[in-house]
Design a protein around this nucleic acid. Structure first.
Lengths: 254, 254
DNA sequence: ACCTGAACACCGTTCAAGT
DNA sequence: ACCTGAACACCGTTCAAGT
């Protein structure tokens, strides 16, 4: 109750698509869903998702906290609206003809969007998330990118899911690395850690650590790129290589 | 302050590895980190992460809320300990020799763990997450699975990251589908939605919807599997196919 | 039907006090 | 140094009242 309309659609879905009935009687409304979501996004951009409270949003609009509940039935609903609004792609998008390049371009679009509003990744995705407007638009573009490839609909959707998840996790990783650049432990602290990650219990990881990667002695490797661009590209390379091999196989026995 | 020890290590890391100094003087301690984390996990398993409050955890241990702060400097720290503890693999793991099969087995192990404690996926991953004990153990196993493949360390790590992210997102999707089986809209609600997702604005998605997929008229497709096993396997297939093609290329010009 | 103000039932966390 | 009890500063949300 409260999170679905009388049409059975989740309220956030109805609001986002603008198919929610607006009351006709009574005083005119002082707010709109758009303004509320925009205000909440502004706060999240500036101070993180944790700073988005009903009171903070209302205050920034010069309204009482309670007035928001005339538009949004719960904070959760507001978060879902924010989440979809955050995934905003350019109005006009020109994708390359080659599906490889098109998929890469598509991934980059999503990455750009998430980089602008990274807090969107912290919001748990609800049941109807895939049917929200921006998500549908994004999926439609992704399908357009794949129109030149021999996969059925279900497989295409799976590919888009895979890529968008990859992008999301890379942006998240990128952020958590940038947040503190890891941490700076004392030599004594590092020694404790190294003794805990013993070669006999974790031979492969210990070998990598001994080789100087990941847990370095230096407080922070100053020359190391410390980005995740390589991992991002590698993941796309791998997926595309996998798709090519799938295509070859399909072409061989059609 | 408070989230790092005097060795510079994040407190959660020091606690999880057991390298945190324990005070020697004063009365003996009535609790342990293990018991606190176990109690919190029990609550999360039974009633979700939202039910894990400091008061609820303390109560289930028959202690005051405040006593927990002698062991954990914040709720956030407790959540990080829970997150790592949730990723528990079997004590003894026998991986197949073939790296393809080994990677699949590895992915299945992670999936099993996440299925037991799905709330772990809701906890944001902090800076030191990759160095926590279970995560290190898991990564070590993953590297073992890939020992027969010609990739450098960085690429192997990237592959493990990719696979574990895939697994996580599939379990999450699986859960959100099971949570409500989507939603059941009235014919009128569905009609509104279909008009919103117009073929001229979203040609590819609209085509898929018209073909009967995803937003069906029936309240809930009773015969449809509604699982994500196909997508899960497809993602692994794709990644492994990509790795094979990478290997072929490397072997051709060594 | 809108917006408001007071109030409720929580939270995480601080702090001073007891042992 | 442990555990406690009271208290603080929030938070989301309900409700009755005004317009």
């Amino acid at each position: 109750m409260g999170d679905t309309t009388e049409t059975g659609l989740p309220r956030a879905l109805a609001i986002a698509w603008g198919v929610q009935d607006v009351p006709q009687r009574g005083p005119s409304r002082g707010l709109t869903h758009e303004r509320i979501v925009a205000a909440a996004i502004e706060i999240a951009d500036a101070h993180g998702l944790g700073a988005v409270t009903m009171q903070a949003v209302a205050k920034s609009l010069d309204f009482t906290t309670m007035s928001l509940y005339r538009y949004v039935s719960s904070k959760d609903e507001l978060l879902r609206l924010m989440q979809d609004a955050a995934l905003s792609l350019p109005e006009e998008v020109e994708l390359p003809d080659d599906w490889r390049a098109a998929l890469r371009a598509w991934a980059d679009l999503i990455r750009d969007a998430y980089r602008v509003h990274p807090w969107a990744l912290e919001i748990p995705r609800g049941q109807a998330a895939v049917l929200m407007p921006r998500t549908v638009r994004t999926a439609d573009l992704g399908l357009a990118a794949m129109s030149g490839i021999a996969l059925d609909d279900g497989e295409k959707i799976a590919v888009l899911l895979l890529i968008s998840q990859h992008v999301a996790s890379m942006v998240e990783l990128e952020r958590s690395l940038a947040a503190e650049g890891g941490f700076t432990a004392t030599p004594e602290g590092l020694e404790k850690l190294r003794r805990a990650i013993a070669p006999d219990r974790f031979p492969h990881i210990a070998a990598i650590m001994a080789a100087g990667g990941y847990v370095a002695d230096a407080p922070a490797p100053p020359d190391a790129p410390e980005g995740v661009d390589d991992e991002y590209e590698f993941g796309l390379d791998l997926l595309i290589a996998g798709l090519e091999s799938l295509e070859r196989r399909a072409r061989r026995r059609p």
